[in-house]
Write a protein that binds this DNA or RNA. Structure first.
Lengths: 120, 120
DNA sequence: CCTTGCCTTGACGCCGGTGTCAGGGCCTAC
DNA sequence: GTAGGCCCTGACACCGGCGTCAAGGCAAGG
């Protein structure tokens, strides 16, 4: 499978797949003419990558998940390294949630102050 | 008051104050030698700007708040334009909260799957 | 042969608030 | 006169995932 086909099947672009490769997430072989050649299993990997990116992981965080998948596991997050990244990201998300919640509270307070001033 | 003094009093840097000016948030006068001259009221304005930035507003969003303050209001968010921006930002924050909450749920689910596999 | 359509590498752009460096002017104190 | 500390403008760097353009190779069909 060439890069264009994999990109289309994964719902993304060739540029994006080359970017993943550049960052060590996928390692396609090459045809005699230099074209990247992907086997069907890579589709699964790319889907995993994109799911993790959508959950806010960075490309470097994703490496252990891909390695875990390639090691034959049914999902990429059952390995110790992946689990560590998962826990780190969970803590990070919790931090963001706290910050956003605080912001939300301030915004709401300010909006209520306005309403009070409208009927003094 | 020169830019360095205002920066220090506001807990920021001259570079940052010039950036705010470049984006229309503050309009200092100039000394004969070209130095920016700030009066004491600007300290309040800069504090307002920084509080709004910390709550995730962009510099363009902040303009109505500054205008509101300059119009003599006790706080920058009591004017209709500011209130509109506040509501927009609140909706945005709610959106982010929803997304982050969904991500958090997925992360937790995956971590629990791991625990289950550890004691099969 | 020529077009078309895929592929290749390389490189810049984006976004946004700020740090930081370059190159130069003003002012005060010694 | 000169050293030091403030000020000025202008411009590049950052971060990260990807769009997009450039310039060119390869394959197949007319």
């Amino acid at each position: 499978m060439l890069i264009g086909e994999l990109a289309e099947r994964a719902g993304t672009s060739p540029r994006t797949l080359r970017y993943y490769e550049e960052h060590g997430l996928i390692h396609p072989s090459r045809d005699a003419n230099g074209y990247r050649q992907y086997d069907d299993g890579e589709l699964r990997v790319v889907h995993e990558i994109r799911a993790l990116l959508a959950d806010g992981f960075g490309v470097d965080d994703i490496k252990p998940f891909v390695a875990c998948l390639r090691a034959g596991n049914s999902s990429g997050h059952v390995c110790p390294d992946s689990a560590a990244v998962l826990r780190r990201r969970l803590a990070e998300v919790d931090g963001y949630l706290d910050q956003l919640t605080a912001v939300r509270r301030r915004l709401q307070t300010q909006l209520e102050e306005i309403k009070c001033q409208m009927t003094p």
